[in-house]
Nucleic acid binder design. Sequence first.
RNA 1: GGGGCGGUAGCUCAAUUGGUUAGAGUACCGGACUGUCGAUCCGGUGGUUGCGGGUUCGAGUCCCGUCCGCCUCGCCA
Length: 598
Amino acid sequence: MFIRTHHCNQLREEHVGQTVTLAGWVNAYRDHGAGLIFVDLRDREGLTQLVFDTEDSSQDVLDAADKIRNEDVIKATGVVRRRAGTPNPKLATGKVEVVVTTIEVLSKPDQLPFIPTDEENLPGEELRLRYRYLDLRRTKMQKIIRTRHRVTKVARDYFDAQGFTEIETPILCKSTPEGARDFVVPSRLQPGEWYALPQSPQLFKQILMVAGCEKYLQICRCFRDEDPRADRQAEFTQIDCEMSFVDRDNVMETMEGFVRTVWKAILGYEVPPVQRMTYHEAMDRYGIDRPDTRFGLEIADISDLAAKTDFGVFTDALAKRRGVVRCIRVPGGADKLTRKMTDAYGEFVKQFGAGGVPVVKYTANGFETGVARFLEPIKDELAKRLGLEPGDTVLFGADAYGTCVKAMGELRLRLGRDLKLIPEGQWNFLWVVDFPMFEYHEEDGRFYAMHHPFTAPNPDQVGAFLAAREDDRDTIESIVSAGYDMVVNGSEIGGGSIRIHRKEVQERVFTLLGISKEEAAEKFSFLLDALRFGAPPHGGIAFGLDRLVMHLCGTDNIRDVIPFPKTQTGADLMSGAPGMVSDAQMKELHVKSTWEPA
RNA sequence: GGGGCGGUAGCUCAAUUGGUUAGAGUACCGGACUGUCGAUCCGGUGGUUGCGGGUUCGAGUCCCGUCCGCCUCGCCA
């Protein structure tokens, strides 16, 4: 027998006359004194009004009710009746109330740091995290927790129906080179050696393919010891998948089905067929590898025209390696963009390494203000190419390609926000494909894997890849991988690739990344061995569960969708983690701290 | 590691150019009230202005340092 007979969302007129028992927290109380008290009782399902009055409740019960305060935990038994006063249309149970004949206070709180139901006076996030159990009592947070559950349930059901098997992989792993900074765990049994927490189960899921599992699923925690952001947490959850005997299209089709199922189940939204865009197109048009296609303001290339001017900003940029001049046309910008705003944009792009944002207005008389005089030689061509109309503003960027498109891409997003061009309630899904395999880093003069070192070249690139000389930077940078990212509204929600299943291709990648045979053998021999013993072609993807839930719940803060998140300094304000350990623990683990208080 | 914003009552916030005893709402405590639903009305408790130093006749306010939180660059294969 449960303590309660009903939840607080259940009672209706049909229950009138029944004796019921409810239990929960006091959401609000209205004490009219002289024998009339209302209490809104809350449990996780909803609210029900309790009433205490002299006609129906004993003096003992009235006395107890008189002491009721917010967030008391109580159990109340009474009779359901139609409300004597006006019904409350805001409540599902608003036509009835429970006349209490027995009340038991199960728990009486001390002075609360904050009242979770008082949305008006909701405290800052610091306090919400410190007293997370109070914060989580809020209806909004309860809804997120349950939505998150539903998303994982939909995922398990969908992938189960598609023939996937959920398989666990280790949390205590081996540190591997490349990638993010590892969280590490000292080994007690093997002095001086360390485990690393998984950045993802990448190698294990590939090995499960070699093991013949064919379709793998795991909803797994991943750890990356890097600084967090609004949409990024050091500890996060992936919906991780891998499939054998598939090509890129097979994986993408299966995964599209997944997001379609989730959006339908949670929001009732039908995701249309997902468009594809190459990485290069994304960078050219949007200046970012995860374009938000909900609004225009696309970036235009005018390098050829800029070369005809004497504008130093343009010509200096064009003299750089891969120097370009790009611009964004802002329709009607003359009225919408103030001088203050465009000045701020100049400062804004500096954080992305750009020098500034030259500006010009287009009027019935041609270009005016800003850098108008420099554009004289190209004024007609430029106006024609950009399709300018009087009242437009044009913002320019000039730099090496990478810096320029990055700055323009970020500027575009800021313009979209500032000018309120981003529509609400719209879902723009997009596959970004054909990423470069490698990025060259000037600082240390070597290549890095853009995705990870197990990503296969696109099938039509394998020959060129194996044939390319290590010092042929242009050719190597031109090799395109069989990777794919799923993007929604400018946010990356998943990414994956077809993997390398041939040992000679894998070894070639390691060589290009400057990983020696010895190091590769030491770090990855288990994978390389596996690839030697009959590996099927395979590929997969990982979705960021936290981000999926963020979007589905309409929040832009990843901490909102994690029950017990950490702060920007990696602290759990509720539990106090991280904390010191005893000298005895350290000794047992063969570890000495070099840290000294300042 | 860098840049920016913030920290005042349990909570949300205010406090003119540096100037009287740091205020309001809410919560809490006490009182009134029989149909409320953000109940209402009356009264009350409650402050190391994050912490440390400095400038000044005088600091919540200005300066330096520091801690914490948030946003962000770097970083995140």
